[in-house]
Design a protein around this nucleic acid. Structure first.
Lengths: 245, 245
DNA sequence: TTGCCGCCTTGATGCAGATCAAGGCGCGAA
DNA sequence: TTCGCGCCTTGATCTGCATCAAGGCGGCAA
């Protein structure tokens, strides 16, 4: 998982390590280099809409974007959260099935779809790497299904916080040492509610309840401090009886 | 989508058309032929367990299997339903994250994992085909997230029935002509409840309600007749205002 | 034929989370 | 400094689904 360290240039454009660095050769890298470009989408901006055809695949360099669906009557469910190094787009497919929006300012590293697909066609390494990434996304989606189908509001909020902590830990490479953890939430309460399949009021009440129980502190609404991760963990156990890896 | 028609032998072993038929060459087919074997798992049997390491990848030839997670306290959520032509396993990954069980007697076409992965490594076609299949699964999982997060019990049951109808239609190649449709449910009420994130009682009551409303008939508990699909459809609309494709 | 056992249905009641409603707080603009 | 506007919190009430409980039905074995 420290592919990131393999080539320092990967930090600039995560796709280079996540999709291809592991075993790609220099030709592939050179081609990718030639077809990429950067764009920044302002907070609240639409990155893509369901049904729309995309002529770029991209990778999140910085910021936070959401993948969601809105029903005719306004009900909305988030189905994906895109953070740096996550991939956007469906190689081999021109259209998306969900809306993608910028939750904060988002910088993307984009690749022309046709050129990128040509690389996939010729290189088993790239296709294989994308397959692995997609399988990971599928696991995330399925764990999310369990959360939405069976967890209580309190458990959902705890899982959300833990997933952010875990995500941050793998970003920085830090092992989850004990001691207080500080989180800057990239999402508003409304977005968190859409993430968790709850209403904004219930979400807010759960944050309040966790604070009253001493499990978290909330210096500001968007800043969460977890004095001791272990206190939060026990409620997030799965069938193995252990906290999520 | 009529890859199935490309080679009749595909019917015998769906992986041949779903994973590789589209553009594979004869060498790849020959290798697959050499590493496959068939097994039948009886109804209720365990096909794989979360965390277990698998040395086969397989494809469902007949029957119905479920992908699910059970929490420590017994709460259970289904996250995948495997019907003929669906693929089991995670190329490049030795272990599963979810339990897979036979909902009916299930016949699998299995491939030795190492040999299959060797094919993936050498053939962009196979890797690309698997990527497409996995992206499709991801879309299904995300639509399922919307169902679990935001739909009412009644809407969930309707979606479930429509997804079976749609699935059956693509299997038989029949367009969704109007007129009555008959469905044999491959799942018990309890499994349907786990699929939909509901209790068995609520699920049963919703079937009763749909029957009282004249939207379905239930000659037996496992047999559903839908007199007119269009009556069922309107409640299953998404943001585009149209029924699911 | 009878009785058992799984599976399904139905009824009564309870409760978690939705809904409706009313502020509070912080921040940027005038 | 004050106003206005997002965003968040809190309270009161409602309700859809869960829970608890009791049969019904159909298939299979003795």
């Amino acid at each position: 998982m420290n592919l990131r360290l393999a080539r320092t240039s990967c930090i600039e454009c995560p796709i280079r390590h996540r999709a291809v660095c592991a075993e790609c050769d220099d030709t592939e890298l050179a081609v990718l280099e030639g077809i990429k470009s950067y764009v920044t989408v302002p907070k609240g901006g639409r990155i893509a809409e369901a049904g729309e055809s995309l002529d770029h695949l991209s990778s999140v360099v910085s910021g936070c974007a959401t993948v969601s669906k809105t029903l005719a009557d306004g009900r909305r469910q988030m189905v994906g959260l895109l953070l740096p190094s996550d991939f956007i787009g469906r190689p081999g497919r021109a259209t998306l099935s969900f809306d993608i929006e910028a939750a904060t300012d988002v910088t993307l590293c984009r690749f022309q779809r046709r050129a990128f697909e040509a690389i996939i066609r010729s290189s088993p390494n790239v296709a294989r790497r994308l397959l692995t990434m997609t399988l990971d996304e599928l696991d995330v989606a399925r764990d999310w299904q369990v959360l939405l189908g069976r967890l209580t509001a309190r458990e959902r909020v705890i899982h959300f916080l833990l997933s952010l902590v875990r995500r941050e830990a793998t970003e920085t490479g830090a092992a989850h040492r004990s001691g207080p953890v500080r989180l800057e939430l990239p999402l508003s309460r409304e977005m968190i509610a859409d993430y968790l399949g709850l209403t904004i009021e219930t979400t807010s009440r759960q944050f309040t309840a966790l604070r009253k129980d001493g499990l978290i502190e909330t210096p500001t609404a968007r800043t969460i401090v977890v004095p001791d991760l272990l206190n939060l963990m026990p409620e997030a156990m799965d069938e193995d009886g252990g906290p999520i890896a």
